[in-house]
């Protein structure tokens, strides 16, 4: 499935959170969404998922209005991973992952063989099989993050929208998760991932969209989107670049030197 957001505008009260943003999600592509806090990344994700109806513009799924798609169908085809506090009930990790199968189940039906297989695959891919009998209340932040990622994978949708799925992971787990998302994309899924880690974004994503104050500031392959000028303009940072294993990498290094105001006040 191909999802296209056209001139999406979203307002919270009088504040424009998204301003005529256009974005296409292609099957088989890992798309990184980066930008400073408050740039509108999560709102864009919510709009693309059909959760926030845009005030202007529209979201098309394979050329049809996403808003017109029945909720059950949309739930099977677009999986979402949002940052939200859990309810705090003592669910087992496996039960949490099984929630990803809800869109596939008949009302009051039990988990079918296909559901069990999908749960197994998702937990295997995220290295959480050993946690299956652990209660949510006894999971560490990183373990819970991987269980929630497994939950989203268990939907086995054509599109995966993930909001900061590596925020709580240690460096090794973050690399694993990014590699997993890329594998998922290679398998034909369209993956959009909101990231704060520019190094990992540049290393793993096929395409990067830089969001700044509700607008697309740059878009393209990492080398095209994450130029020194863009990073200075949008993030106020200078990066160090290099090559490893034949790939280019970048590491955020210092705040951009500012002629006028001190860095904290300049953006507001």
């Amino acid at each position: 499935m191909r999802i296209v957001g056209q001139t999406l505008t979203v307002r919270y009260g009088s504040r424009k959170v998204l301003d005529r943003v256009g974005l296409a999600i292609e099957p088989g592509e890992l798309l990184g969404l980066v930008g400073p806090n408050g740039a509108g990344k999560t709102t864009l994700l919510r709009a693309l998922a059909g959760l926030t109806p845009p005030d202007a513009g529209r979201v098309l799924a394979d050329g049809h209005d996403l808003a017109a798609m029945p909720a059950e169908t949309r739930a099977r085809r677009v999986a979402c991973l949002f940052q939200a506090p859990m309810a705090g009930w003592p669910l087992l990790a496996e039960e949490i992952v099984a929630l990803g199968r809800l869109p596939h189940r008949h009302p009051f039906g039990r988990l079918a063989q296909a559901d069990h297989a999908a749960i197994e695959r998702a937990m295997g891919a995220t290295d959480t099989l050993h946690l299956r009998g652990r209660r949510d209340t006894a999971l560490s932040a990183g373990e819970r993050m991987r269980v929630l990622l497994a939950r989203a994978l268990a939907v086995e949708a054509e599109i995966l929208l993930a909001d900061e799925p590596i925020a709580a992971l240690d460096p090794g787990q973050a690399l694993d998760a990014m590699a997993l998302l890329r594998r998922l994309a290679r398998g034909g899924t369209g993956v959009v991932v909101v990231l704060h880690d520019l190094t990992l974004a540049a290393r793993f994503c096929d395409r990067i969209v830089v969001l700044d104050r509700g607008c697309v500031a740059a878009e393209g392959a990492p080398a095209v989107a994450l130029t020194d000028a863009v990073l200075r303009d949008v993030f106020d940072i200078e990066v160090v670049r290099g090559h490893a294993d034949g790939d280019a990498y970048l590491v955020p290094w210092v705040r951009s030197p500012l002629p006028h105001a001190p860095p904290m006040e300049r953006r507001r």
Binding site: R46, A49, L51, A71, E72, R74, A75, R76, V78, A79, C80, L81, F82, A84, P85, M86, A87, W89, L91, I96, L99, G100, L102, P103, R105, P107, L148, R151, V155
Partner: peptide, 23 residues
Amino acid sequence: LSTGRALDALVLGEDTATSLGFG
């Protein structure tokens, strides 16, 4: 009783429950 499934999904928060197809 008809809301049982939706209550399960709500464990993950309102956004995720909506994304799982529950109004």
